[in-house]
Design a protein around this nucleic acid. Sequence first.
DNA 1: AGCACGCCGACT
DNA 2: GTCGGCGTGCTC
Length: 815
Amino acid sequence: MNNFVNVILPIPLQQLFTYSITEAEKDFLEPGMRVAVPFGKSKIYTAIVAEVHQKEPTAYQAKDIFQILDERPIITKKQLKHWQWIANYYMCSLGEVLRSALPSTFLLESETQVIKNKEFTSESSLTDDEFLIIEALEHQEVLPIQKISAILDKKRVLPILNNLLKKKAIVLQEEIIEQYTPKLIKYIRLNERYIDQVALGELLEELSRANQQRNAVMTYFSLHGATKKPIKQKQLKEVSKVSPAVIKALVEKEVFEVYTIQTDRVNFQEATDSFKELSEFQEECYNDLNTSFEKNEVVLLHGITSSGKTEIYVKLIDQVLKQGKQVLYLVPEIALTTQLIDRLQKYFGNKIAVFHSKYSLNERVEVWNNVLNKSDKAQLILGARSSIFLPFSELGLIIVDEEHETSYKQFDPAPRYHARDAAIVLANLHKAKVLLGSATPSLESYYNAEQKKYGLVELNRRFGNVLLPEIELVDIKEGYRKKRMTKHFSERLMVLINEALDEKEQIILFQNRRGYSPIVECKSCGVSPQCPNCDVSLTYHKLRGELKCHYCGYHKPLPKICSACGNPSLDTKGFGTEQIELELQELFPNHKIGRMDLDTTRGKYGYHKIIEAFQSREIDILVGTQMLSKGLDFDNVSLVGVLNADNMLNFPDFRAHEKSFQMLLQVSGRAGRAKKRGKVAIQTFNPYHQILQQVTTNDYATMYKEQLYERHQYKYPPILRMVKITLKHRDYIKVTSGADWLYTSLYNTFGTNILGPTSPAISRIRNQHIKTILIKLPQDKSINLSKAVIQKIKNSFQSIPNYRPIRFNVDVDNY
DNA sequence: AGCACGCCGACT
DNA sequence: GTCGGCGTGCTC
């Protein structure tokens, strides 16, 4: 009987691929294992086994697999089901899901290696390039193709290599490179023969003249006696203060032995704190949640900022861990949650594993393996959106914290999934519960709760009855008209800042734009420098004296004269965080100003440093973009200022109002903790805007009602679902005609439910012209059916030769 | 997606 | 004459 496997390859192709396997391989292979398979002319890829079967393909000859890479599945059956759901729902291939889901370390790829043929001698027959290669191979026997390319400084080296191959001068070989390197730590132990007291006495006697060596041995004993644990070489060196040579000498004398243990790169301490006593309201909320979970799979917890949601989560987590089940705690942006990690770590100690993209690949593999092995170290997983892809075996609870955050949605590349929604499906597969938590729930979740699809629990008290901050709107239209502004600060805001500084309290200022100023404009001719690759104005970054594009990374020095008219009359318009920071330094020279935005938080510990400096009160005023609004608690902040609320409100998106409300309330929540009532000042040109009014009264209910009414009126989610199609190409005419064609074909099925084609606000990025089409999925038809139609139209689109090179992205639930 | 193949214009 | 540009087709 012939045996075959269907495998998922990490490429964006819809189909699975079938390979032939031997009888022995059939007995060994299971879905979820990795195999290395030859693909195309020469490459070897890592694939995941999806199915083992006996159905021989008829249209082609299946190739043999190259190698089995695992002894047991590294992907669980539940994961494979979950992947399938994501691929179907978000209209992408399983291969794309695979690429996102698996740490890239697991995806070994072959690299072609060039090896010299030793029997080859007739070097005279070689061309110059060929000779260079052979010469390089004299020094180093094996060279990857890239190196060859570098040596010759040419891109196309394959023809040359083919000639060498013909002349039998070289051999090619595909090498698979294992990327994961376990971290090994050196330990020291005493040679067995000195366990005997007499032998030990003799040893010490023998070392009586070697003071340092004796010292090292004595230190070993005191360490060993104190901890009874294996002793690291490093530790011994540090405590005894001897040089490495001393230890080496003892090893050579066979007094000490060195051995290595593979360790995890990330280790947490044991738990140090016991759980906090819940307040009366928290306790009540906790009980409500448990009651709600009896009836609902998903419960939405709407708890105002500082209501102590985390403490309630902790109690729920503990309850689930005690049943021996795993808990996934999703957070929007893990790098911002060092405070949360610290807190959870105190309660759960080394049961926590953290998973996010700023971790190194090796660290991610370790977390993956720990989860797969159901290790004690990974009972509670704290992670960003991609942690829904970890190989859980027995998930009991998923917490989605700050459920409304947009960073749960992946926009590029595919799979364009929403981690909250994918988490609910994942929980379903595990029969686990989901808790969505937020102070400002997304309309869709609140709607689902209202429709009784989710349970709903509300928590309206701040912990310790701290009052909600007092929010005032400051009209800056007047201020500007009467020239009463101090740079970008209104009189009122200046008063509040001075008051807070006098009281030695800290201040957070929020401006949702980085750089110095978003537009540079010539006062003589009105021309402003644009990015050559994108359809945007360049942002001025004063510190670096540069004009920068925030979309493609293009940058150049600020020109002295206008490139259009030649006059030295360039001026800046609008302002970003950098300008605010500089203004503050001028206005408050005796206070320390900090800035937190994408530009200052690069690197693994970028955030950490700034947050710590602010927490330890080294910084008095912190200026930042929206990243300030996420999950940070500072106990000495009495004032939060929003410099301009209008650009958010006027953003051209159906969710602009909802998002503004959420962001403003979240930033406001940073004000006034423990001690006293905080103050929030929101500067705006339009203080009568209904959203701003709702923010001042913390009126979620009215905001929800009004926004939902509008969504009904204009048929937007959560009333309807949407799919967004994005077309991109370098040729403007090509995309435009493609978009028109697409509109016409979609019109037959969807009629007026299609919006577009439109050029987005930024219609060209990295020299790619963009067109978008929005499809509102009709309520009266099945969503799957509608998606099938879209898929069919996509296929026809791509079979038109002229449109084939146009990039075609489908984004389901593009919000 | 990646990669080979093949066809065409710009240079040693 | 070759190098390298990119359009086209295919991958079990």
